[in-house]
Design a protein around this nucleic acid. Structure first.
Lengths: 143, 143
DNA sequence: CCGTATTGCTATTGCCAATAGCATTTCTTA
DNA sequence: TAAGAAATGCTATTGGCAATAGCAATACGG
């Protein structure tokens, strides 16, 4: 059986990412959240009163698509909104949100460790630089 | 602005893959196909009379999800079906499919080259081994 | 021959992203 | 300061892709 795809870095990149994401979501499912939820929680935790729009810019999620994401976290009482001015509202973690984030962090930490363990030791230091090289270029285009 | 996400390999992996995929799809859009279409075309080209089910196993796409994909390519006359036995049908590239694949290959080749160019030269040889390390582990779980 | 597995399919659901458009508020600057 | 431009949050819709459950027809194996 010929498999010309597994020699294409682009293809393997997608598959590796999909596998990692699926694995992460399996871990997060226990907490009732998805990876996108957690990425927002992490961001809000690090930047209290972050605007929904600004969070979207960092996460590369468009304003329109932030709405259901934020609504969901509001409904779960994981975040709250606090008016900043007449149109913007700063996001904050509730105590429930902080507690859940702590649990999610444990899941993520474990996930990241597992990821590293998959890679032969001598290649491990190169993982992040390579991925950043691939990602950062697209960032300069987008923003 | 704190960005705790960009130090997480798992997160950066997803973003890098998403960026690469989006870029590839931009290139393929001119041809009226998507990356998933092309991955199937490549596979069928390398393995004529491949069964839809077997292609799904290689691409990690479930049988049910292969249906719309194959239907689309049939409708575009890029592939054809040839009965193998009472239930299976082998997939074949039509001449139109071969022609389009050749154009798509050019797009992909260019895409893969660009990908490599983003990475500092001394890291380039490590790209594929690292990605395979991440991907292959999930393959042994799945199959 | 009979139970089991396989193949292709329908139908539905969920997640995530993209687009277009809208009302409100803020900023800019002439 | 008034007027145009930009930002913010939102609605509504669409598309791509994956997951699940279930079905009919066919093939396989003891």
């Amino acid at each position: 059986m010929q498999d010309p795809l597994s020699s294409l870095p682009g293809y393997v990149l997608s598959r590796a990412a999909a596998a990692a994401l699926a694995e992460l979501n399996r871990g997060l499912a226990k907490l009732g959240v998805r990876h996108s939820d957690v990425s927002l929680l992490i961001l809000v935790n690090a930047n209290p009163r972050l605007t929904q729009s600004d969070a979207g810019k960092l996460l590369d999620i468009q304003r329109a698509n932030m709405v259901p994401l934020v609504s969901r976290l509001l409904e779960l009482s994981l975040i709250s909104k606090e008016p900043v001015d007449g149109r913007s509202q700063g996001l904050l973690l509730t105590s429930k949100g902080k507690k859940l984030l702590k649990e999610a962090q444990a899941v993520i930490d474990h996930h990241e460790v597992q990821l590293q363990l998959l890679i032969p030791e001598h290649l491990r230091p190169h993982l992040l630089p390579i991925l950043h090289a691939l990602w950062d270029s697209s960032r300069s285009k987008t923003s």
